[in-house]
Amino acid sequence: MPANRFNGYTDYGVGIGLRIPHYRHILTKKPVVDWFEIISENYMIDGGRPLEVLDKILDQYKVVQHGVSMYFGSASDPDPEHLRRLKQLVKRTRTPWLSDHLCWGSVDGRYTHDLLPMPYTWEAVKVTADRIRHVQDFLEVPVVVENVSSYAEYHVSEMTEWEFLNEVVERADCGILLDVNNIYVSSQNHGFDPFVYVNAVPTQRIAQIHIAGHSKFEKYILDTHDHPVLDPVWELYARTIERTGPTATLLEWDDKIPSFDEVHAEALKANRFLQGAAQPPSEPAKSHELEGVAR
């Protein structure tokens, strides 16, 4: 959705991930970019160059925080130190919303540093939604959750991934960062129709969209973020925008990173769809969308 309570009523356009190889270009050339997404964990430190660069970027650009290790779906409790540092960073960046993944990745205080798929069970719905609410209350900023790419499914699952996502966000009353590349990757790995997924997501909760490239192997697809966006992903993006109207969009490019201009040009291709999109979404917004940010 263009501006809603899940993205702090902002109307951001097309951004790219802030990546180290581009620091110099951005700081010296000061290119016009709608917004940057930063990886929170890279700046949850006490000092040094990363924070110096971040402060310079914050002076000139809109910045949104994206985390990779909150693990809303982990059964064990989150690390209080992690939350404390994250909140400190939120104060620094004044991010209008904050995203992390609908996954798990740590157990008993041990971290895999991966985004591991959830079992789609009712117990997991409850654990995950409770965690999201807890984090959102603590951070005092809208929290949105991102669907991940996955390579495995569990026997114990009691629903589809999109049903699970919908249950979680309803119970947590949070927004969604819809990664259409991840939907495509998972659809190929698990054999479902990605359009069914996209069409099932509640548009009024979509705060942001991710687009990215992936790599195709013989028996599965890997979410590699080292390519331009592929056509089937653009098609899913087009369908999403058709449903939501123009929505903050971000290109992720994390490996074999080309020049800033090349990455930015790839992201700006999203404008083809955004500019053509009708402003009001095809589905009527629910009344609670007009309420203030849930706390």
């Binding site: 540093h113 991966d114 390579y151 569990y154 026997h155 054999g191 028996k219 599965y220 890997l222």
Partner: peptide, 27 residues
């Protein structure tokens, strides 16, 4: 096999292996 579904291309073992390898390569 007890917790991961196989699909038409990959066994349960192979699907779990993707994560096992990814973990070590990243670290």
């Amino acid at each position: 096999a007890t917790y991961i579904k196989p699909n038409d291309r990959l066994s349960s073992f192979e699907r779990l292996e993707i994560y096992n390898r990814q973990y070590w390569f990243r670290l």
